[in-house]
Design a protein around this nucleic acid. Structure first.
Lengths: 182, 182
DNA sequence: TATTGCAGCGCAATCCGTTGAATAAGTAGT
DNA sequence: ACTACTTATTCAACGGATTGCGCTGCAATA
C-alpha cells in the first residue's frame, strides 16, 4: 500500500500535477513502482482529504485546468514515519516465468520466440537506464546518489535477466542436440 | 490474472489438494508467483465452476476431509491457450526501492540497517535455490530442465541483488568520507 | 478534412488481494 | 496438562487495482 509513499517521494522535490506524476511513474520511479494515471488521481484525492498534500488550481487557456500538488507537513511526517518501519519484501508475480516453469507443455521454439521478445524489452530498458546513469555519473548531491543507486539496481537487474536468457538458449540448444541425435 | 494458470501448471503433474498447492506456492512456484492459501482456495472454486478442474472428496480419519483436484481437458485447453499468447511484463512494486529512491530523507545508517536485513533474506533464498539446483544437476527430463531454469532465474536474481547491495555500501561509505572530511 | 496524439482530469464497476478469523482433530514438545 | 504446530478448508470485510469509459481542446499529420 505504498503508491502513496511513492507519490510523496516525488512531491518532495517539486510541485507537480497528476499528469506530471503519471509521466514520472512511466519513467523514473516506474523502475521500482508501477502505477497508472487513474490510480494516481485517485490516490491524490485521498492524500488531499488527509491533508498530506494540497493543491492550487492553475487555469490554463486552451488546455484544461490543472491542479498542482505539493506535499504538506503532515505528508512529510507520514513519509518519514513510513521510511522508518521495515518494508515488506516485494511479492513476485511474473507471468512469463510461470510459462517457463510450465514449459514442458509448450514447444521450445515458441518459448524461444517469446524469450527474444522479452529480451528486446530488457535490452531497451538497459540502454535507457545506462544513459540516465551516465548523465548522473558526477553524482554529487545526496539526491543524485540515490537516483543513481536506483538506476544501478535497474541495470544490474536487466543484466541478470539477459544472462539468464543466454543460459536458457544454450540449455534449449543442448536439449535439441540430444533429441535430434537419437 | 494468472494465479489461475500457475495452479493449472502445478496440477498438470499431479492431483493435489488446496493445501498441497499452498505449500508448493510457498516453495517452488513461489519463486515466480506468490499466493496465499485463501487466494488458492478461492481460485480453485472458480476453476471448478468453469470445469477447468474437478475434485474428489477424500474422507480422512483424524484429519479433516480433503479435496483432491485434478485438471480437466478444458483446463488443459485454457492453459495451452494462455501459453500461446504473450505475457505482459511483470509490474514492479518494490517498497524498499521506493525508500532508496527517496533516500535523501532518511539517514544513511538506517538505510544500511534495512539493507542488511534485506540482504539476509536474499542470501537465505540464494542458498536454498542453489541447494535445489544442485539436486537437479543431472537434469534429464524436460520437466527437470524447466524447473532448473526457473531456479537459475532465482539464483541470478539474488546474486544481482547482492552485488547491488555491495555497491550501495561502498557509495554510502564514500559519501560518509566526503562529509566527514569537510 | 479526418485522424491521431498529447495534455489533463475524472467516474463507475468489477475484480483481485489481503487480513483476520473460525472450525476441527491429531501430534509433538515442555 | 498446556502450548504450539500441522493438516485442511472456508467465510467475511475491506481496500487496492484494473478496465473501460467519458469529457475538453489544441497541434500536427496524412
Amino acid at each position: 500500500m505504498s503508491l502513496r509513499h511513492a507519490i510523496l517521494v516525488l512531491l518532495q522535490d517539486q510541485e507537480a500535477s497528476g499528469y506530471d506524476l503519471a509521466r514520472e511513474f512511466a519513467n523514473s520511479i516506474g523502475l521500482v513502482w508501477n502505477a497508472t494515471h487513474q490510480q494516481i488521481y485517485l490516490e491524490l484525492g485521498k492524500l488531499n482529504e488527509k491533508d498530506m498534500v494540497k493543491f492550487r488550481h492553475i487555469p490554463q487557456d486552451g488546455k484544461p485546468d490543472k491542479k498542482m500538488y505539493r506535499i504538506t507537513e503532515e505528508g512529510r511526517d507520514e513519509l518519514i514515519r513510513w521510511l522508518r518501519k521495515p518494508a515488506a519484501p516485494p511479492r513476485i508475480r511474473d507471468a512469463f516465468m510461470v510459462k517457463i516453469a510450465g514449459g514442458a507443455l509448450s514447444d521450445p521454439s515458441s518459448i524461444l520466440r517469446e524469450l527474444e521478445d522479452q529480451a528486446d524489452l530488457r535490452r531497451e530498458r538497459l540502454t535507457t537506464f545506462e544513459d540516465l546513469a551516465r548523465k548522473l555519473d558526477d553524482r554529487n548531491g545526496d539526491k543524485d546518489m540515490y537516483t543513481y543507486l536506483t538506476l544501478r539496481r535497474g541495470i544490474l537487474d536487466q543484466q541478470a535477466w539477459l544472462n539468464w536468457a543466454e543460459e536458457v538458449r544454450s540449455e534449449l540448444r543442448r536439449r535439441e542436440d540430444l533429441t535430434t541425435s537419437v
